[in-house]
Write a protein that binds this DNA or RNA. Structure first.
Length: 836
RNA sequence: GCGGAAGUGGCGGAAUCGGCAGACGCGCCAGCCUUAGGAGCUGGUGGCCGAAAGGCCGUAGGGGUUCGAGUCCCUUCUUCCGCACCA
């Protein structure tokens, strides 16, 4: 039974009510009197229960937001709900509840938990993406994108998840499996779909990363760069021998190696394959081989390690540079979707080609020699030479460097009209059609007479029908709601049908942070002046899991908005922080694993301040954190210890006005006071630094713990410590804690006799002169090994320091009979005596 | 295979610019207080030798630079993450 614990439940409820009544965290639009700071945590998908993994994310954001408030910033710190999505619909099917009811109940619960933790959100700005007031603007943006040619419709092969019963974006396919169903293989289906032309911005998305280099984690940028996958090369046309007019195009980044090509290899899914195989002997065997190849696992990890397999088609192609005829093969290692779906096989200078040639006995012809060293010989090669070098056996290009040849051969190919320089990207347009109910209806109408007609702005929003519709195989749920589907053509007034697909929910989250700047605007997605004031987001905090999807789409949306004249900046997020996961038993907390620590349970047992403190203390925020039920006791203990300290001395200092700026005259201070004053300023200096540049709250907390320990060590504090000094020290201690554990800090602030909430107090400034010790400890080393320590005056000269060290009674005997080679003196730090 | 991050006591972690390795906390040990302790307080706690003073070893392994390396360089290993037959 714990007896001495402070009453966290009462205190937390008390101060949450005060903040709420005061509107303590209301952001003021357009306030020019102070700097603005837009701090955002990724909006949650309201499903399941909030656990300490979520709370860590919000606690980090909240500590920074509160710190910025105290530093005088106008802080925008909002919260909302990513409320559309499949789980709501699946729960609806399972339990017979409407997705709206399910979602609303979850939102209510999430809001309750976040409020229970006392996060400093401006709740007036709360948004929910499933409300018509919000998704109306999804539709509005969609219409603008149609006008700009960014949203378009095409029939294409799409990723289809048979469990989700919907199409997935490329970004939602992981190794050929559905991102939500790890064991469900994604199928390919031909469907008429809406796409957003993100590829139009490929280069810009790539180039503008330069603006993010200082504020975003390197690895997120690397992942995005790889995802965009820009590759510069040459497209070259090979004529097919014996079929007049037939040709194959290959894409290569190493056209300089083309004289070494010993085959053309096409993907099993290459569209021209059937034509090529016409009239070739052995076609039936080939057809079955092809079929087998096409059915092979699409799992990337399998593909990468799979044995290379292929067969000769019986056809030959003509190398346009050399005129040489090379065989045309089909192989499993060529991707139909990338480049042209066909490659030239250069065994000497490409590792995959080397392995393929090795297996099937294709010739290895060296056409690039290393610039230095022993020339390569085909009969002594064990792997491909893929470095740059100097061309050999390459007709007129022999002797050129790789760089020269790439430029010249590409130019020559273009001049002779059998090739062209080309840039390819891995990034594909973003397929946004979803055959599900719980999403934003795509605002388009199909009329027999007028074809596709965008819904006019004044008819927005196109509301989801209240009647729940459930997906049947291959058909959108909305198609089964006649009241929704049947409508009039906005152009001719004749009968027409609505688009029944809904939008990918990543559309919702691609621009939601703009809506926070003007959440109740009925005329526009947001007011440009308001968004202009708040943007860009100064600090975004969220999980690394969104490194590609959400963060790339958001950047894309921003650029579209800019081109629509809605914003002036290129990038929406100036700084990104990706916090580590909270794990239990070595794996991330998740409901399905059953290893969650519920946020409410935590708050009920220890109080939310203890939960907040522990998540900040147990590890630096970017690292994964292993949850420990034992270690959390330490955080609880510390808060109690600090509370008792304040409780004990509050009476004595309560009526003393806090004069933080009053001059502290160390000369008049007692020894105890000197220690406390210096320790306070040293702590404040380092904690301030941690908040400003490092975000290592774990070390901040450790320092505050040390300060509290020091206060205990200096007991009795009612002797030799004036109430004025004690009050200042305790006040600073409480102020430093307040961004991290705000409720107990408010309570202690009040106990110390202060008025007004601590949350709006000014962050105290440390005084450099008060951080300095009178005497500095100098380390004395002999040959780099610690041999002694001396205390010296701060302003001791280098020579004096050296003499003190050499004559130190502990050191001097060790020097007898040795030759002093050198003495290194690092002022205010150490002396190293080098002996022979 | 390519790219990125990391590897420090029994555990989480600290060491911010190349200068005392292990701050702070957990756990553990001893003591105080107590009818009681899952409360509080005090002290101890990297390993080895030693009664102590003190000494030696120690930041995944090996090598190097330096008066001095957890920190910089080379190299090997391990773990995690991302991408993955991208031509």
């Amino acid at each position: 039974m714990k007896l001495a614990d402070y009453d966290s439940q009462r205190i937390e409820a008390k101060w949450q009510k005060v903040w709420d009544e005061q509107g303590a965290f209301h952001a003021e639009d357009g306030d020019a009197s102070r700097p603005k700071y837009y701090l955002l945590e990724m909006l949650p998908y309201p499903s399941g229960t909030l656990h300490m993994g979520h709370m860590r994310n919000y606690t980090i954001g909240d500590a920074v937001a509160r710190y910025k408030w105290m530093c005088g910033y106008n802080v925008l710190h909002p919260m909302g709900w990513d409320a559309f999505g499949l789980p709501a619909e699946n729960a609806a099917i399972k339990n017979g509840t409407h997705p709206r009811d399910w979602t609303k109940a979850n939102i209510q619960e999430f809001r309750r938990v976040l409020k229970r933790f006392g996060f400093s959100y401006d709740w007036r700005r709360e948004i929910s993406t499933c409300e018509p007031e919000y998704y109306k603007w999804n539709q509005w943006f969609f219409l603008r994108m149609i006008e700009k040619g960014i949203a378009y419709r095409k029939k294409s092969k799409v990723n289809w998840c048979p469990d989700c019963l919907t199409v997935l974006a490329n970004e939602q396919v992981i190794d050929g499996f559905c991102w939500r169903h790890e064991t469900t293989q994604v199928e390919q289906k031909e469907l008429e779909q809406w796409f957003l032309r993100i590829t139009q911005y490929s280069d810009e998305l790539l180039e503008d990363m330069a603006q993010l280099a200082s504020g975003w984690p390197e690895r997120v940028l690397v992942m995005q760069r790889n995802w965009i996958g820009k590759s510069q090369g040459t497209r070259v046309r090979f004529d097919v021998a014996g079929i007049s007019g037939a040709s194959l195009e290959v894409f290569t980044t190493r056209v300089d190696t083309i004289y070494g090509a010993s085959a053309i290899v096409v993907a099993a899914g290459h569209p021209q394959l059937d034509k090529l195989l016409e009239g070739v002997p052995g076609r039936t065997t080939m057809a079955s081989q092809l079929k087998a190849m096409r059915q092979k696992s699409m799992r990337a990890a399998d593909i990468a390690t799979a044995e290379k397999e292929g067969f000769f088609t019986g056809r030959f192609a003509v190398n346009p540079f050399s005129g040489e005829q090379v065989p045309i093969w089909v192989a499993n290692f060529v991707l139909a979707e990338y480049g042209t779906g066909a490659v030239m096989c250069v065994p000497a200078h490409d590792q995959r080609d080397y392995e393929f040639a090795d297996k099937y006995g294709l010739p290895v012809k060296i056409v690039v020699q290393p610039a230095q060293g022993v020339p390569l010989r085909a009969d002594r090669m064990s792997e491909a030479y893929t470095e740059h070098g100097r061309l050999a056996d390459s007709g007129p290009y022999s002797g050129l460097t790789t760089e020269q040849a790439l430029a010249k051969m590409t130019a020559d190919a273009a001049a002779k009209k059998f090739g062209t320089g080309e840039t390819t990207y891995r990034l594909k347009d973003w397929g946004v059609s979803r055959q599900r109910y719980w999403g934003t209806p795509i605002p388009v109408i199909y009329c027999e007479k007028d074809g596709m007609v965008p819904v006019p702005d004044d008819q927005l929003p196109v509301r989801l029908p209240e009647q729940l519709a459930i997906a049947t195989a291959g058909q959108s749920p909305l198609a089964s709601v006649p009241e929704f589907v049947n409508t009039k053509c906005p152009k001719c007034g004749g009968p027409a049908r609505r688009e029944t697909d809904t939008m990918d929910t990543f559309v919702d989250s691609s621009w939601y942070f703009y809506r926070y700047t003007d959440p109740h605007n009925f005329k526009a997605p947001y007011d440009q002046t308001k968004a202009g004031y708040w943007f860009p987001i100064d600090q975004y905090v969220g999980g690394i899991t969104h490194a590609i999807l959400h963060l790339l789409y958001s950047r894309f949306f921003c650029k579209v908005m800019r081109d629509l004249g809605l914003v002036k900046h290129d990038e929406p997020i100036a700084r990104l922080f990706t916090q580590g996961m909270v794990q239990k038993g070595g794996v991330a907390m998740s409901k399905s694993r059953g290893n969650v620590v519920g946020a409410i349970d935590m708050a009920d047992k220890y109080g939310c301040d203890t939960g907040r403190l522990y998540t900040l203390f147990a590890a630096p925020p970017e690292k994964d954190l292993e949850w420990s039920e034992q270690a959390i006791e330490g955080s609880s203990r510390f808060l109690n210890r600090a509370y008792r300290l304040v409780e004990k001395h509050a009476e004595r200092v309560r009526s003393i006005p806090i004069e933080w700026n009053a001059l502290t005259d160390l000369a008049k201070a007692t020894a105890k006071e000197k220690i406390l004053i210096r320790r306070t300023h040293q702590t404040l200096k380092r904690v301030t630094n941690d908040f400003e540049v490092r975000w290592h709250f774990n070390t901040s907390i450790a320092l505050i713990m040390e300060l509290v320990n020091e206060l205990h060590a200096q007991e009795p504090l009612d002797q030799e410590v004036s109430p004025t000094i004690l009050k200042r020290v305790l006040a600073v201690m409480v102020l430093m804690l307040s961004p991290m554990t705000p409720h107990i800090a408010e309570e202690m602030w009040e106990m110390l006799g202060n008025s007004g909430t601590i949350s709006r107090q000014k962050w105290p400034a440390y005084r450099e002169d008060l951080t300095r010790e009178e005497q500095i400890e100098i380390i004395i080393q002999i040959n780099g090994r610690l041999r002694g320590k001396i205390l010296v005056d701060e302003n001791l000269t280098e020579d004096e320091t050296r003499d003190r060290a050499l004559n130190d009674p502990r050191i001097a005997p060790l020097l007898v009979g040795k030759e002093i080679v050198k003495v290194i003196v690092v002022p205010k730090k150490l002396v190293n005596i080098v002996l022979r």
